[in-house]
């Protein structure tokens, strides 16, 4: 019997994101009850947005997030409340990003914005209570890592973001991206080497 992605990832721990909401919420989502939908949205918004941000960058992260939740609503009646929705959301998010890469829409909007200019980053820095100089270094490092990720070819970017950022195992990544387990591991190794080179350079 084939393992589910949840079982495949047991060795790695759960993927990034909160634990599933109560079952009655998921059941309500299948019935498209507004309160349940609202709670589901609040529960997973940042998880979806974060993955989209890492995959397509800031300029398209909100667009992808909106498309993901549009698709979620369309398919909500098929949600199985017994299972962890994170895997499903990850798959939809990745596929939505892939559609954007294919359409070339990202090339129209590709743009980098200094992380220093973003108010949400500023708010996060203020909340952390760390030394401003250290915060500057941390946020600069984050920005350079994100820039390096975005400069990777899309398949390599997806390999490293899904595995290391999102916390999915190679089996789950292979299934999501439609390649073999071996190919997924090789692609990840190549992505890691490329990223290391860019961060050095």
């Amino acid at each position: 019997m084939a393992l589910s992605p949840e079982e495949k990832d047991q060795v790695d721990g759960a993927p990034r994101g909160p634990e599933p909401p109560p079952r009655n919420v998921l059941t309500g989502v299948t019935r498209r009850e507004p309160d349940a939908l609202r709670e589901f949205f609040e529960h997973y918004l940042d998880t979806v947005h974060s993955l989209a941000f890492r995959l397509v960058g800031e300029s398209l992260a909100e667009d992808v997030t909106q498309d993901v939740f549009f698709k979620v609503h369309r398919a909500a009646h098929r949600l199985d409340p017994e299972r962890d929705p994170r895997y499903w959301l990850n798959a939809i998010t990745y596929n939505t990003c892939r559609e954007i890469w294919r359409s070339g829409a990202h090339k129209l909007e590709a743009r980098t914005v200094s992380i220093q200019d973003k108010p949400e980053v500023g708010a996060r820095l203020r909340e952390s209570g760390r030394d401003p100089e250290m915060e500057y270094e941390v946020s600069s490092r984050e920005a350079s890592v994100q820039a390096a990720i975005e400069s990777l070819p899309e398949p390599l970017r997806a390999a490293i973001v899904l595995h290391d950022y999102q916390g999915l195992g190679h089996e789950a990544v292979a299934e999501m991206t439609g390649i073999s387990h071996v190919a997924a591991r090789k692609r990840y190794s190549r992505a890691l080497a490329e990223l290391a080179k860019k961060l050095r350079g």
Partner: peptide, 28 residues
């Protein structure tokens, strides 16, 4: 989203509910 009025940004003719539903958390 809660009111079912959230529209798509990028039209995606390939997306269908079956493809989404084949993912593990859904009852096929």
């Amino acid at each position: 989203f809660a009111s079912g009025r959230l529209g798509p940004v990028h039209a995606d003719p390939d997306f269908d509910v079956d493809a989404v539903a084949s993912a593990p958390p859904f009852d096929e």
